[in-house]
Amino acid sequence: MSNVPGDLKYSKSHEWVRLEGEIATVGITDHAQRELTSLVFVELPKVGRAISAGESCAVVESVKAASDVYCPISGEVTEVNAELANRPELVNTDPYGAGWFFRLRVKDPNEISGLLDASAYSALVG
């Protein structure tokens, strides 16, 4: 059973968002990391990049597959988790903590209401 924290919002493409003021922290869910299995590579967006909700913003590689990660909310990247370059396995071991991907200054905080809450995401992933 996947871990789905109640204080986060989720996309149907399995990213999570923690919104604090105008800054959103983004990562991929426990369900996603289980499906991907052991990550060997994470590519993150550049700081300063403006990204729209639904846009491809990162790439992860596992088991001979490179997969796009989509941005759940629009904004400008303010910080990335540089630790993932050397330790992509953090996404597997701590997807909601040390395995976070990047932070955004959100364009419109109201966009978050279009995302799933924990119970809706739990229903999606079964």
């Binding site: 001979k64 597959a65 997969s67």
Partner: peptide
């Protein structure tokens, strides 16, 4: 090797994925 096809211990085909939405 996840996605190799192997005949008599030797790799005869290598394969990979790219996944979008």
């Amino acid at each position: 090797g996840v996605t190799d096809l192997v005949v008599r211990g030797r790799k005869v085909s290598g394969n990979a994925q790219r996944r979008r939405a």
